[in-house]
């Protein structure tokens, strides 16, 4: 019994090391002299300098951020509305609605992306950054809905009833009581929605206009060429740092 526990423990540690390996290797090679690429020949910061002066990277980073902010604001707003309605009112078709809200999460993104593209083509809507935003909101509403609904279902509606008894109208109750209680759920939903959009590749790739590049699309453009581009490794270091900050912030929010 003790020996199987030990084996399990060692296996788990090796497993965790294994999932970090590709990331560690990316960062390691970001310090490599760029001529040899795959064989480590010497330490240099050259790749970081070339990353800093790479206009295309920062342009696509900027696009990723602004589109993700718009997507997050809209989808969290709509997510709050639907989850409030579902947890506070009884109406026909509520269970059906709850199932339909899950579908955008279950459907593989490539199918979502292709159907939206066909839809845009048939209606003759020209691709623009806004078609990308429209596509992202469609899956982010569901993520926002699920997270906020969980928070909303988890607290006692008596607070709201008390506020109503004390004379607050429904809108006052919502803004002064419901919203503050929901805040951790809303922040958590916003983080998830932001990350889903900021990190999205497939839907962006199908619905973007030519020349509009987000960070994942930029990474794809570089990585789908067969060779190795060590700027991309330097970029990876930068993205890993951001991701760790994200993971940490999310943990803090969940404990809130």
């Amino acid at each position: 019994m003790k020996i199987t526990d030990l084996i399990l423990k060692i296996y788990t540690v090796l497993f965790l090391a294994g999932i970090y390996l590709p990331i560690a290797i990316l960062i390691f090679f970001s310090f490599n002299e760029s001529r040899s690429k795959i064989v480590f020949t010497g330490f240099t910061l050259e790749n970081y300098y070339s990353l800093l002066s790479n206009y295309a990277v920062w342009d696509s980073f900027y696009n990723s951020i602004w589109t993700a902010i718009v997507v997050t604001v809209v989808s969290v707003f709509l997510g709050i509305m639907i989850s409030y309605g579902v947890t506070r009112y009884e109406f026909k078709g509520k269970n059906m609605l709850d199932i339909l809200m899950l579908i955008p999460i279950i459907i593989p993104e490539i199918v979502e992306a292709l159907t939206l593209l066909v839809f845009l083509i048939i209606l003759g809507i020209r691709l623009s950054p806004y078609t990308v935003i429209i596509g992202h909101i469609a899956f982010d509403i569901s993520f926002a809905y699920i997270v906020i609904k969980a928070r909303m279902a988890g607290y006692d509606p008596q607070f709201e009833e008390a506020a109503r008894t004390l004379g607050a109208n429904e809108i006052q109750t919502f803004t002064k009581v419901t919203l503050p209680i929901l805040m951790p759920g809303i922040v958590s939903a916003a983080l998830i929605a932001f990350l889903q959009s900021y990190d999205d590749f497939i839907k962006t790739f199908f619905t973007r206009p030519p020349g509009f590049t987000t960070l994942p699309v930029y990474i794809w453009n570089m990585a789908s060429r067969r060779g190795f581009a060590l700027d991309l490794n330097a970029l990876a270091t930068f993205i890993v740092v951001i991701s760790i900050v994200f993971a940490y912030v999310r943990l803090k929010v969940e404990r809130w």
Partner: peptide, 28 residues
């Protein structure tokens, strides 16, 4: 669980690109 999750917050295209350094003929 945090340790388990963190790498999956890094963009998947980058993680796949990282695997190329491992599988290459001169790789890890």
């Amino acid at each position: 669980v945090l340790v388990l999750f963190t790498p999956f917050w890094v963009n998947f295209l980058l993680r796949i690109y990282g695997m190329r350094f491992i599988f290459h003929e001169l790789g890890f």
